[in-house]
Design a protein around this nucleic acid. Sequence first.
DNA 1: ATAATTTTGTTGACAAGGAAACAAAATTAT
DNA 2: ATAATTTTGTTTCCTTGTCAACAAAATTAT
Lengths: 157, 157
Amino acid sequence: MNKEEQLIMGFRDLYNKMVWLNKSKMEDSLKGYKSSEVHCIEYIGKNVDSNVTKLAESFYMTSGAISKIAKKLIEKGIIESYQKPDNKKEIYFRLTEQGKVIYKIHDELHKEFQERDKAVFEQITEEQFDSMLSFVEKYSRHLDAEIKKLAVDIKPE
Amino acid sequence: MNKEEQLIMGFRDLYNKMVWLNKSKMEDSLKGYKSSEVHCIEYIGKNVDSNVTKLAESFYMTSGAISKIAKKLIEKGIIESYQKPDNKKEIYFRLTEQGKVIYKIHDELHKEFQERDKAVFEQITEEQFDSMLSFVEKYSRHLDAEIKKLAVDIKPE
DNA sequence: ATAATTTTGTTGACAAGGAAACAAAATTAT
DNA sequence: ATAATTTTGTTTCCTTGTCAACAAAATTAT
């Protein structure tokens, strides 16, 4: 196995572990809320004028799935939808007061995770940090371009 | 947003993109096989005496889910199960001839992905590479310890 | 202006995966 | 030796997410 493979598989394993662990902690603290719901709450809390489309793109999920999660969150009174006077098509979301409470709890939890993992980050230098950040960004942009290519493949102009 | 958060979110976004893109390509080339099935084929091809438990642990999935995928792969004739004379409990899997063909195709595809992303890896130095690998490993071990803690929390000795 | 296309969101049918209950074998404790 | 516990795997029921069809609004082309 070469280094590229090793790194990618290391990433995958690391990511899986993090998701699994944080999900456990999350659903333990925020009982009654699934991690996908909390993700949406987080996104809506951070981004004004969130809608189904933006959420779906951000999470690499279908809009159908987001539509259902949003519906559930509205029923629970966590988020509410609103529209703009000049656009009858797009439907935006914002947190309700109750939603802001959940958001806050989620945020605390995030800080807890950071505290938990502080020891790992303290071991790396500022240079290593920056070099990783730049790598991740480069790779991400590279994949954006590849995803774009795929879209053209599917429906050529 | 501090650098730690930025890096974690960068990871997440990168990982999501990669999964989404490679899944698309995969299910395009290996029509009739879901990416979870291909993952299992890959693991079984690489690890002798794979079983439900090991697959589940590796993918952070439940053994129930793996059991179902394995069943489907056996029905399709991609893998076969076997046991050892001194153990009537554990059930192992190996690829059939047909399974090896799928494995081979999957492997080619992997090389294709590497080729596709070569440009990104060429831009980083050997030192950057090693430093990222060591970071990923350290973080991974750190999370292993945390996961262990969680297990003790759930069922104290 | 209006016709064609694209964007946005929702729904219902279906498939994949998780949780829990279970059985059988293996291991550990007494 | 045998009783209690743990490991391994399967199945059933349920939740979540995808896919495809659809409707309505917005945008673009003619």
